[in-house]
Each structure stands twice: as C-alpha cells, then as structure tokens.
Design a protein around this nucleic acid. Structure first.
Length: 585
RNA sequence: AGGGGCAUGGUGCAACGGUUAGCACACCGGCCUUUGAAGCCGUUGAUCUUGGUUCGAAUCCAGGUGCCCCUGCCA
C-alpha cells in the first residue's frame, strides 16, 4: 500500500478515499459505459484509465456496460472492437453487461413511479413537448396530460409497450418541475416508442426504449456501482439521477464528473472522426493517423505509452487540451527502452569506397539496444558499396553540419571512417553517387590515433540490402486547434496534405528481412517504426511511429524561418522604395 | 427567470489557511556522446480581476470578467 502514497493526487482519488473513510461506501465499484456506436479514441482512454484504476487502486471492481438504449444508432460490430481496444490497453472488466439486460427492471421502475403519481404518459406531439419545455431563460409549462390519473397512465403505458401506438405519438415522462432552472428536470422523457429497427440484443421484444437518463443511473444502481465517473456534460443530469435514486429508493451511486481529454493537432468528436473516414481523408478507423485506439495501435504506439501519457495529463474539471508533443514524448520514452536498433536508409544515395577491395565483404558487430544489454548484438555486412541518406551528404555544407562533404571525414556507424573525394552526376546534373576513401585502421568506428570525427552516419551495404516500403506519417492537421476555424473554414480545411508520404525506395540492413507485423524498431537517427499488417512475403511495409527528437532539424527550421523573414523584409523595403520613386516622379 | 461548472508559467497537472508556489512536457543554455538519439546539469517563466475575512490567502467569502455545458422522443 506504499504505492498509494506515490500516486498523484487528484479530486477523484480524494473523493473516493473520503467516501471510504466516512463509511459512505465500504467497497469501490466503477463501470465503463460506452455506447456501441463508434470506435474508442484516445479521449476515451482517459475515462477508461481513470475508471479502471479507481477500482483497482481500491481493490474494487469495474464492469464493462454497453449503453444500448437506442437501437437506431447501435450496432454489434462496435461491441467487439470496443472490447478489443480495452483489452489492448491492458484492462480487465469484472462483468460484461448491457443496459438492455435491465429493460425488465427499468420497466418495473417506470410502473412504480407511475403508480406513485411521479410519472405520466404524455400525448403531446414532439413539437408541443419542445415548445412547452420553455427556453434557457424562461420556464416551461405543464403538459395538459400531466395530472391525469395514475390508472390512465398505467393503461396507456401498457398499451405503449404492446405496440398499439406509432413512433413518436406518446411518451412517458417523469413529473418533476417544468419551471426548474435545470432543463433536464423539466419533466424529462423516460420512455419513447421505437418500432424499428430491432434491437441488437433484445430483437423485437420491445418497442419502447428507456432514455439514457432513465437507464444509466439505475443500471449503475442495480450493479452496485459506488462511483459513476463520467464527463462534465453530465453534471447537469446529476440532480435527475439522484431524483430517480431517491424516488425509487435504490442503491445510491455517487456520480463524479471530470473533463474530457483533448489533443492539439487532433479532432476527437465521433462525428468528425466519422467524416474523416466516410469522406476518405483517411483509410479507415484504424488509419495510423487517426486518434482512435485502433489507429494508434496500427501506428505502433504501445498501450504503456498511452497509459503513461494519460497519467501525465492528470485529471481535473477544467476543459483543456494536452500537447500532442507530450504523447510523442511518452512513446519515445517507452520505445527507447524496448525497441531494437537497426539501420535503414530512407532516401538512398550510393557511396563507393575506391580504396576498398572489390570482392571483399566483412561482418561488423552492432549493438541491438544501447539501453538494454540483454538485447545483445548482431552482425551486419560491409563492403565497397553502400547507401547513405541523401541528406547526409552536402555539396556546400552549412555551418555546424557534421556529416559528409567533399574532403570531410565521418564515421560510418559500427564501420569505418570515410572521406568523400568525388561526386558523380547524371546527365541532368543530379548527384547519383559519392566516391570516398576509407581508413582501414578505423574498423568498428574507432581511430587508433585517437582523432575525432564529429559526424556518425548510418548506412546499408548495397548487395545485401533489403528493399522496403515505409509510410511516413505526420500529424493529420496542420494547426494546433483545427476546431478553431476562421472565415467559413472547417476542420477539413486544416488537414495536413503531407500527413502521409509513401516511400518505396527504402533500403534496409538484411537482418530486417525476417521482421514480422507488429515488430517495432528504431531505425537509427530516423525514428521508430513498426511492421504494418499490409506487409507481404515480397515486400515489408513499415509505419513510422514517431521521429527521434532532432536538434539539427530544429536548427534548419529556425534557419529557414529566418531566411523567410529576411526575404519578407527585403520585399517590403523594395515596395517602399518603389512607392517613393513613383511619388517623386 | 435562467441553471450548472471552470479559471495557477507556453501546455497539462500539484500545492487542502502557514518556507524562496512544486512536477512533467515544451523552450533556452551547457555537459556527455560511435544515433545531432538517449542520458546528465542548469536558466527563463504563473496564482484572471477588485474588494473582504485572517497575524497570514493560490486556497475561505462577495462582486466583476472570461471560457465551457444545458432548450434531442441522442448518449
């Protein structure tokens, strides 16, 4: 239990501890209640983690309960996907329940309230119901059917259940207060009629379905859930849930609300995610650019990284948007420790060592994971010809560029020191090959004379290289808050056109030949990658999970920014001068 | 005649009436380096506002301001 002291404090942990201390509850039970009408995203992950951890930290239990009170929206296919995602994140529920398991009990609760004069059947049209609900600033008015005798409502409700009325004709309502400042207390609808479609679990047994507000609280109560943790928008509904609990005299679940998790450069609402899929901006719910759990899974994120990220963002009642950079930090952190290193060249440029024997091939030893000795070493072939990244050679090296250039010596990782001597061009003047010489004394990358080289670059031997496809993913949106759109634009207008770049020119070291879908590697100096399920026996396909932190890229970016700024200034100056000249004339 | 919530560095959280308001990420600088990675060290930077209570307020109270949620027979 010393572990408990090290857990970061938050208002939910405090509330739960208090309830235990005060004796309000003598055990802890929570529930995760998704509606089976879409895929889980990383926003759900926070709810999932808070809910399951609250139970686990208190030796309690957590149920999985699908909120399936609306057959027109819900589908079975989502049930399995949701379960898979929860398992992937590493959580185990005690029971798998459905709100529809309680339809009989809910029906009995309704009858009880009608009999006690606390609910009534309303025959107003949907329009009338809406009009009489009032507005945010004005009270509603009572339905003409509000004070009908209980027997009448009872009979009507029975006939509702028996299918004697068409959809939308009548509803069952709680009799609370049409003048309440809280609109969810203005005689909320408890049951509505829905003849079609059949429910995914109860089929055609029912044609009346409880509203979420009449189902959720009682479902919690039936299961003995002590703490019903949910998002902020249900705060307004809490008085209603408590009203039902009091009137029905059932187990008093305590509801606690917290803020949802938002992410920069991301949209999170189900509606917008659907649009991205349906309109083909991404390839599906599990597209590696999607913030869905299945998307992150395919992208190569680990459940551990997602969990530690969510823990790091904490939980509060303040609406906030976490930096997607923090998520990236957590996946790097995790993969740094667990991913084996390999060498792969994404944008190959051939290099020939002119003083290396023609037919010689030697094996060099490379460390698999400098963070983990138990990962061991491997051998990689080296010969006269190999590939390096095009960006690792520069004709006109800028300041502080440590890589290869004519006359410059660099270290080939785990290989030799080489010095570039010549550039070979094609007819168009494009660089196609670099010639260099090597120092045979520097095998393994060490200079016996102790001389230093600043640059170490990765490489892949040409004859044994394994070609592959790499899908280079970037953020799906180009602005931090795509929802904050201006002048008639929508989030769609902020989609990053370069969020996916497919690269089929990749050359990898031969040890990668036997990589299997799901295997993750760090390609040294390039980032973390995972073998995608699209891989075939002929072609390996990798997804880029995340780049490495890259100080050099930052320097270059800063330089580019400065250049642009300078150009802008120069242009303005030019304009100003022209104006002046015109004036003078 | 409206009701409910929230406000702490750039971002996200902590501090529960009592040191110089702490942590993580980001940023900036340095060290180290056979990954411009990782690691290590350091710097900058915050209590929305106005009053009140108190010996003492980020914390309690009141007003103001700003943002979020609520007028589905959705969840």
């Amino acid at each position: 239990m010393t572990e408990e002291n090290t857990l970061p404090s938050n208002f939910i942990r405090e509330a739960v501890a208090e309830d235990l201390a005060s004796g309000r509850f003598d055990y802890i039970a929570t529930r995760f209640p998704p509606e089976p009408n879409g895929y889980l995203h990383i926003g759900h992950a926070r709810a999932l983690i808070i809910t399951f951890s609250t139970a686990a930290e208190n030796n309690g239990f957590c149920n999985l309960r699908f909120d399936d009170t609306n057959p027109v929206k819900e589908e079975v296919e989502y049930v399995d996907a949701i379960k898979e995602d929860i398992k992937w994140l590493g959580f185990k529920w005690k029971n798998e329940f459905y709100a529809s398991d309680y339809f009989d009990e809910l029906y009995a609760f309704a009858i009880q309230l009608i009999k006690e004069g606390k609910a009534y059947v309303d025959e107003q049209t949907p329009d009338e119901v809406r009009e009489n609900r009032g507005t945010l600033k004005e009270p509603g008015s009572n339905s003409p059917f509000r004070d009908r005798p209980a027997e009448e409502s009872l009979a009507l409700f029975e006939r509702m259940k028996n299918g004697e009325f068409p959809d939308g004709s009548i509803v069952l309502r709680a009799k609370i207060d049409m003048a309440s400042g809280n609109i969810s207390m203005r005689d909320p609808i408890m049951y509505r009629i829905l003849h079609e479609p059949p429910h995914h679990r109860t089929g055609n047994k029912w044609c009346i379905y409880p509203m979420y507000d009449f189902a959720h609280g009682q479902s919690d109560s039936i299961e003995g859930i002590t703490h019903s943790l949910c998002s902020l928008e249900y705060e307004n509904h809490r008085p209603l849930y408590n009203w039902f609990i009091n009137e029905l005299e059932i187990f008093p679940t305590r509801q606690i609300e917290f803020a949802r998790l938002n992410l920069t450069y991301t949209v999170m609402s189900k509606r917008r995610l659907v649009r991205l899929v349906k309109e083909g901006f991404v390839k599906g719910w599990d597209d590696p650019r999607m913030p869905t759990l299945s998307g992150y899974r395919r992208r190569g994120y680990t459940p551990e990284a997602i969990r530690s990220f969510v823990e790091a963002t904490g939980v509060a009642k303040k609406n906030s948007t976490a930096d997607v950079g923090l998520l990236e930090h957590h996946i790097r952190q995790d993969l740094n420790i667990r991913a084996d290193r390999r060498m792969a060249v994404l944008d190959p440029l051939k290099v020939v060592i002119t003083n290396y024997p023609e037919d010689k091939v030697e094996m060099l030893e490379a460390v698999n994971n400098p963070e983990d000795d138990s990962a061991g070493t491997r051998e990689i072939p080296f010969s006269r010809e190999f590939y390096i990244e095009r960006s690792d050679f520069h004709e006109d090296p800028p300041k502080r560029y440590f890589r290869l250039a004519l006359g410059r010596e660099v270290r080939l990782r785990y290989g030799y020191f080489v010095t570039a001597t010549d550039i070979v061009r094609d007819a168009a003047g494009e660089i196609v090959e670099i010639h260099c010489t090597y120092d045979p004394e520097t095998k393994g990358g060490y200079a016996p004379d102790g001389r230093k080289v600043r640059g170490t670059i990765h490489w892949v031997e040409a004859n044994s290289a394994v070609p592959a496809e790499v899908r280079v993913y970037d953020r799906l949106f180009s602005v931090p808050n795509p929802m904050n759109s201006e002048d008639g634009k929508t989030f769609i207008d902020y989609i990053n056109a370069d969020s996916l770049a497919t690269n089929t020119r990749v050359q990898m070291e031969p040890s990668l030949k036997h990589a299997r879908p799901g295997d993750r590697f760090q390609f040294e100096r390039m980032g973390y990658f995972i073998v995608d399920s699209d891989s075939t026996d002929e072609t390996l396909v990798f997804n880029r999970i995340v780049t490495l932190r890259d100080n050099w890229a930052r320097i270059e970016k800063e330089r580019a920014r400065e250049k642009m700024e300078e150009n802008r200034r120069r242009k303005q100056e030019e304009k100003r001068r022209q104006k002046e000249m015109a004036k003078r004339k």
